[in-house]
Write a protein that binds this DNA or RNA. Structure first.
Lengths: 124, 124
DNA sequence: ATATTATTCAAAGCTAGAGGTAAATACTCA
DNA sequence: TGAGTATTTACCTCTAGCTTTGAATAATAT
């Protein structure tokens, strides 16, 4: 990754299934690295690195308790991602409307068939 | 990227600022590659590659109109990302509650000071 | 002090990402 | 057909990402 802005870090962190799964498990409460690593067929150092990525994206915070460095979900960063995506919410709601419109259009076209699909907008 | 599941493709596509910006501009309507490339200090082939990434993630669809391959936003995939994130929505709402609790806790501790921060949960 | 448990660091391998330039392809119009 | 415009392919470079193994560090318990 070249970009280091917070949104890019967040989306990049979320682009790995293991990391998403880790977040999912942290949603039920704090876990240590070893506990976290349990289900995955992956070395501990690999998990450590995934945690680093999540930490850099501020999707988790880490504590210190004896020899454990427990991980905790930090949902505020997920909210950041959600805020970005939510600006498009109207678009996917709209697309149902477009589907409706489309369906109405076919019905109409069944009576008066004509152009195949040509919308020939002119471009300079 | 190793993962090829749709969520990973989507989040990975969103992890680049240029690609997010492209989606933002497509939100206002269909655009050709050259129109899209305009604002960025980047070669056309670079833009083509970004579009490929967006297309693979099904965040855009492409048309064919004379020598143009216009791009269109496909919001359904954004909804997929939104659905994943939304399972955590309760967590960031909750975190305000936790802040409240925390603030109450300090107020109490100002009267009877004691342990620095020790929550010493036992772990086997 | 030593053994045990938990976690991280270092080095290396390999694949993919992001960008560039130059050339090829696709379509339109005269 | 040939010129012009739009887009993609091929190829190259460089950096970053994911994973491994083996060794190092940190804290606890004996």
């Amino acid at each position: 990754m070249v970009a280091t802005d917070s949104l890019s870090l967040i989306f990049s962190a979320l682009s790995d299934p293991t990391r998403r799964s880790i977040l999912g498990r942290l949603a039920h409460g704090e876990l240590s690295v070893t506990e976290l690593a349990g289900p995955y067929e992956m070395s501990l150092p690999a998990i450590t690195k995934h945690l680093k990525v999540l930490e850099k994206a501020k999707l988790i915070t880490r504590g210190k308790e004896a020899q454990w460095r427990p991980c905790q979900l930090e949902a505020k960063s997920l909210k950041k991602a959600d805020d970005w995506i939510s600006t498009y919410r109207s678009h996917w709601e709209e697309s149902f409307d477009r589907l409706d419109e489309y369906l109405k259009t076919i019905q109409k076209d069944e009576n008066q068939p004509g152009e195949k699909s040509g919308k020939s907008k002119k471009r300079k």
